[in-house]
């Protein structure tokens, strides 16, 4: 791994890197391209990569025929609602664990983590039956609660690792200035750890947006987010590729952008602070 690279070597490594990275990215590129083709062109051989008649009719059809916006709205509500709810519960808890630890804090943190490791199928049956009996199947509120609980351990963990980096002197100074715990959190801790809170929020929006076990099993139409909506394209095979691509592009675009923006913080959140 020589540090001083010749230009030739650098160019060849660059070519190699672009080749492989391009291959990884290709399915997404292909999906986006296909979404701008007519159904006929999407299906034709040989495939066209750039030079075809670009059209946006698929995007129009997706909305008019299948009420895309309704599902997109559900995704926003489920991902946003569950994340905000989780933050509300997690910020005070993470404050306590970072700044007022007890002998049991470490054990509690690891226990919370272990709840995240329980496979959802292990509780599918009772959750399904409970939701059925309480009329929560295919309801937004039911899913918001479920997604919130599912991600709560990650939210607490991420916030905990961010809060740990705030010098405790500053919180003590607030305390000496007469601030109660609530005010200490609102006026000092939260503004100081805003970047950390923001990246926690983003990661959890991503996870909740893409969650596809509970949403597939517990929603059908009213509360169905984009994951469920896209899954409905799986049955009439072959005929709606361009529309499938258009719907898919719309479904992943916001999250892809959020993901790209928060990629540096993702590692810490995804590994519970084990890799920074």
């Amino acid at each position: 791994m020589a540090r001083k690279q010749t230009l030739t070597k650098r160019i060849s490594v660059t070519a190699l890197a672009w080749l492989f990275s391009g291959a990884i990215f290709f399915p997404i590129y292909w999906m986006v391209i296909t979404s701008f083709k007519t159904e006929l062109a999407a299906f034709s051989t040989p495939p066209t990569f750039l030079f075809f008649d670009w059209t946006i009719e698929n995007y129009e059809t997706v909305q008019t025929r299948s009420n895309y916006l309704h599902h997109a709205m559900n995704s926003v509500i489920l991902a946003g609602g569950s994340t905000l709810l989780a933050l509300l519960i997690a910020i005070p808890a993470a404050w306590a664990m970072a700044f007022a630890p007890t002998d049991r804090t470490r054990g509690t943190l690891l226990w919370m983590l272990s709840t995240k490791m329980m496979p959802p199928v292990g509780v599918l049956v009772p959750i399904y039956l409970i939701y059925r009996d309480f009329g929560l199947l295919d309801s937004r509120i039911g899913l918001v609660i479920l997604l919130c609980l599912g991600n709560l351990p990650i939210v607490i963990w991420m916030l905990f690792t961010y809060f740990k980096e705030i010098p405790k002197d500053i919180l003590e100074a607030a305390r000496m200035d007469g601030a109660t715990v609530t005010k200490e959190i609102i006026y000092v801790l939260a503004p100081m750890s805003l970047p950390g809170i923001a990246s926690t929020l983003l990661l959890n929006v991503i996870l909740a947006w893409n969650e596809a076990f509970w949403t597939l099993n517990l929603t059908t139409s009213d509360a169905a987010p984009l994951t469920t909506f896209i899954a409905s394209y799986s049955s009439p095979e072959g005929l709606f590729w361009a529309k499938l691509s258009a719907a898919s592009t719309l479904a992943i675009a916001p999250i892809l952008i959020i993901g790209w923006l928060s990629q540096r913080q993702l590692v810490r959140g995804l590994t519970f602070g084990a890799v920074k």
Partner: peptide
């Protein structure tokens, strides 16, 4: 490695992680 366009490559490579499972499966 020091390659040209490193940042763009990074974005390209991590992109599939943000694609929801139903979309990637169907695509």
């Amino acid at each position: 490695q020091p390659v040209f366009g490193q940042k763009v490559l990074r974005l390209m490579v991590i992109a599939p992680f943000f694609v929801m499972p139903t979309v990637s499966a169907l695509v």
